[in-house]
Computed example of a mutant assay.
Amino acid sequence: MTPKSFVSALAAADLPSVFNPWRDHCAIHDRRDAAARRRANLEEILAAALDARVETIWIARDLGYRGGRRTGVPLTDEVHLVHAAALMGGIALERATQGPAIAERTAAVIWQVLSRIGQPVMLWNVFPFHPHEAGDPMSNRCHTRAEREATWPLLQALVAMVQPKRIVAIGRDAHLALDGLDIPITAIRHPSYGGQREFIGGMYDLYGITDDCEAAPKLPLEPRHDVGICAMA
């Protein structure tokens, strides 16, 4: 599978109470061509990851409404699009939304660590879309087992395309959900709500960085995206 065909497969998915950023359009925030911009962003990221022969995929649970839902780049908010473009070799990434750039706390910590590590990685989610409560598209919820099973072939296709040597599962939910993959998986605490120092410390240990863990940027709190273990029923 190529980056283009993979993104096309993503864009073809249509699930209830789920926003697919590579297919769907938000009438409130999106530019007219938002879905096409997000598809182009992800294609650029995937092609750069393959060119760089990245060895690691970082995988969290679901796409958040303040981050990848808006940018088309997992674990990356609009504030850090320029960082993603630089880390992946100076690729072109564009905003797909109108108005001020929106920050996501998790993305801020993720990119604080990535900027210190200085190595390109592939960022992803177990469930690649943004699941929300029915009638509330700007909410976050845990994806269901049925949703995960329906999109599992997409995760398998990504792994087959990138061929990583290691996967880093961000959070317990992601770690449990990735149990079926036949690749070494390292579990790291999710940075949300009290976990940022453990996340940073775990990543620094994993990459052999000896600096003291720095505090993450202070951003407005957002609805928690990884609370305990989801039933995923």
Rank of each mutant, 00 (worst) to 15 (best):
R38M: 00
S115N: 08
G118F: 06
K4F: 11
S115C: 09
D51V: 06
R189G: 00
Q98H: 13
D179E: 10
Q163I: 02
D226M: 04
R141P: 09
R70S: 08
H225R: 13
Y65I: 07
D51K: 12
P184I: 07
D33G: 00
C26H: 13
A34G: 12
G135R: 05
A9D: 15
V121Y: 00
I170T: 14
M203C: 14
R38S: 06
I91V: 12
D226A: 14
I167R: 03
G228A: 06
A92C: 01
M1A: 10
D33F: 01
F127V: 02
G180C: 08
D212M: 02
A150F: 03
D30P: 03
T97H: 11
P137K: 05
L75A: 10
T97A: 07
W22F: 15
G90L: 02
P16C: 07
V168F: 01
T151E: 10
D14V: 01
V54Q: 13
I229S: 03
D205E: 14
A27W: 04
A108S: 15
A86C: 03
R39D: 02
G64A: 13
P164F: 09
G228N: 08
R38A: 06
E104N: 15
F19L: 11
A92M: 01
R31V: 08
I167G: 04
M138W: 03
D179Q: 12
A96G: 13
Q98R: 14
A177D: 04
D14H: 09
G201C: 01
C26Q: 14
D211M: 08
R53K: 13
A47S: 15
D62T: 07
C213W: 08
G171N: 08
R31F: 03
L93W: 05
G202W: 05
L10M: 11
A150C: 01
K4A: 15
I200T: 15
T97Y: 04
N140K: 05
A101R: 15
S192F: 07
E222M: 14
G208T: 09
P120Q: 11
D179F: 08
I28M: 08
F127L: 02
M138T: 00
I167K: 00
M1Y: 09
C213H: 11
D182I: 00
T144P: 03
A157M: 06
R38P: 02
Y193A: 15
T106L: 13
A169P: 05
H143I: 10
T76R: 06
D226T: 01
V18W: 01
I167P: 06
E133A: 13
C230E: 11
F129E: 00
G64Q: 05
G99L: 05
G194V: 04
A85T: 09
H83M: 01
N125R: 07
N41G: 03
R53M: 05
V126D: 09
D33I: 05
T2M: 00
R31A: 11
L114V: 03
R116D: 15
R224Q: 10
H29T: 12
R224D: 14
A52Q: 11
P128H: 09
Y207P: 04
A101L: 13
V54G: 13
A9S: 15
S8R: 08
E133D: 14
Q119W: 03
I183G: 03
P74E: 04
P191M: 00
H190E: 09
L81W: 00
